[in-house]
């Protein structure tokens, strides 16, 4: 539990299969079930991008999927973290020479965490999510910091005007 001690909130995950072989996808689902049970950490798999903090994405993305991935990414509110699960999500993997494969999630949207493996094991996926949680907190901190600076600047400006 010590690695999760910094976790103040329940991060929700959106999982999308962008042209993978399904191997990683069933391992992602296996993380939710009794043996691994990530729900004990408050991590929930949601179907709604507007509710999600983390986008967990598998596969090498094909021409038709590209638009869907971009659309889902845009719908997730800031701050958000993207995890690319599996060899295909990193580079296209075994499919990289196929005519219909873009080759890696980072060709389409920015990726924060890469999980290796073909197929990635549930332990590795959970490790990736824990790493993503750290990045999420960092991004949240930065956003709060930026908002504070903006607020202070506005106050200073108002103060300057009144004098």
């Amino acid at each position: 539990m010590s690695t999760m001690a910094f976790l103040k909130r329940s991060p929700w995950i959106l999982h999308y299969d962008a042209s993978s072989c399904n191997g990683c996808d069933i391992e992602v689902l296996a993380c939710l079930t009794p043996l691994y049970d990530v729900e004990r950490f408050g991590i929930i798999n949601t179907g709604n991008p507007k509710h999600a903090d983390i986008l967990l994405i598998t596969g090498g993305i094909n021409a038709q999927n590209r638009e869907v991935v971009e659309n889902i990414y845009e719908q997730i509110p800031e701050p958000k973290v993207v995890i690319a699960v599996g060899a295909c999500a990193a580079t296209g993997g075994v499919f990289r020479e196929c005519y219909n494969i873009v080759g890696g999630i980072d060709k389409v949207i920015p990726v924060d965490v890469y999980v290796p493996g073909c197929a990635a094991r549930p332990e590795q996926i959970i490790d990736g999510v824990v790493k993503a949680l750290g990045i999420l907190e960092e991004k949240r901190g930065k956003m709060a910091g930026a908002a504070r600076t903006k607020e202070e600047a506005r106050h200073a400006e108002q103060a300057g005007e009144s004098t």
């Binding site: 042209s19 090498g60 094909n62 020479e97 196929c98 005519y99 219909n100 494969i101």
Partner: peptide, 14 residues
């Protein structure tokens, strides 16, 4: 359909 089409059949030639 077509969201996961990768073109694996052609890969036999490579």
């Amino acid at each position: 359909i077509g969201y996961i089409h990768r073109g694996l059949e052609q890969l036999v030639q490579k």
